[in-house]
């Protein structure tokens, strides 16, 4: 007899509840496979979000047994050794329905942190020459691979306590731009990321760094922003 997975899946909005399903256990089965099985075989009304299925797009992030994860890269054998799964939408974001969250505030906060590059050259200028071994370029390298999945945002305690907090992803992106010698908005960006909603609100719990599927350490980026804003404040440049 095929082993069964006991799966509890969040249904409805913020005032919803968990619904139980039995799903056949398969070899090399991912949590996304489980959700897809439920939607295709057991309940076609289940709402969830996915795209690439290979850990590139970040759209399938959900809360799996209490932890935010990419479901496509989470093997059942690893996250549910006792064949029990509880799958919920990402925390700290409004629920649209079932496993789908509204990520507008997550992306709006990136804009508030001035996470967009501000060019200082035109197409008629030469390309900027940046030494790959320079400290600023290496700092960027450590933080640049973020794909905006929202796992760090869902894992962050400070986001839960302070709804204005910009969050690890937005601050991490701001840190890459603060280190970019081609960028022309350093001063405005440091002002945008300082203060009660910015880097100074971080308690260094490191949940973001522990959960990031890309193995980025937003905590380190936020510490960099704390240093940069402190130096700017002492120089009267903030």
């Amino acid at each position: 007899m095929t082993a069964q997975l006991q799966v509890r899946v969040w249904r409805g909005g913020a005032d919803g509840r968990f619904q139980s399903f039995d799903v056949p256990r398969r070899d090399a089965q991912t949590v996304l496979d489980v959700v897809t099985y439920i939607q295709r075989r057991l309940d076609p009304t289940l709402a969830y979000r996915f795209a690439c299925r290979v850990g590139m797009c970040g759209s399938c992030a959900m809360t799996v047994n209490g932890r935010p994860r990419w479901t496509c890269r989470s093997h059942v054998a690893k996250v549910a050794p006792e064949n029990r799964l509880e799958i919920a939408p990402l925390a700290n974001l409004p629920i649209v329905r079932d496993l789908v969250t509204d990520m507008r505030e997550f992306f709006d906060k990136a804009m508030r942190a001035r996470a967009q590059f501000q060019p200082t050259r035109t197409r008629r200028d030469d390309l900027a020459r940046i030494d790959p071994a320079s400290p600023s370029r290496r700092a960027i390298d450590r933080a640049i691979e973020c794909i905006g999945c929202g796992v760090c945002y869902a894992a962050c305690d400070v986001v839960a306590w302070n709804r204005d907090y910009l969050g690890p992803a937005a601050l991490n992106r701001a840190w890459t731009l603060v280190n970019d010698p081609r960028d022309g908005a350093r001063r405005e960006r440091l002002a945008a990321v300082a203060g009660d909603a910015g880097c100074h609100a971080c308690h260094t719990h490191e949940s973001c760094s522990a959960r990031c599927p890309m193995h980025i350490a937003p905590t380190a980026s936020i510490a960099g922003l704390k240093r940069a804003t402190a130096i700017a404040a002492l120089r009267g440049e903030l």
């Binding site: 300082a194 910015g198 402190a230 404040a233 903030l238």
Partner: peptide, 12 residues
């Protein structure tokens, strides 16, 4: 609270 003041409080 302004960004410069919040930063100075953090430093303090």
């Amino acid at each position: 609270m302004s960004a410069p003041l919040a930063t100075r409080l953090w430093l303090a």
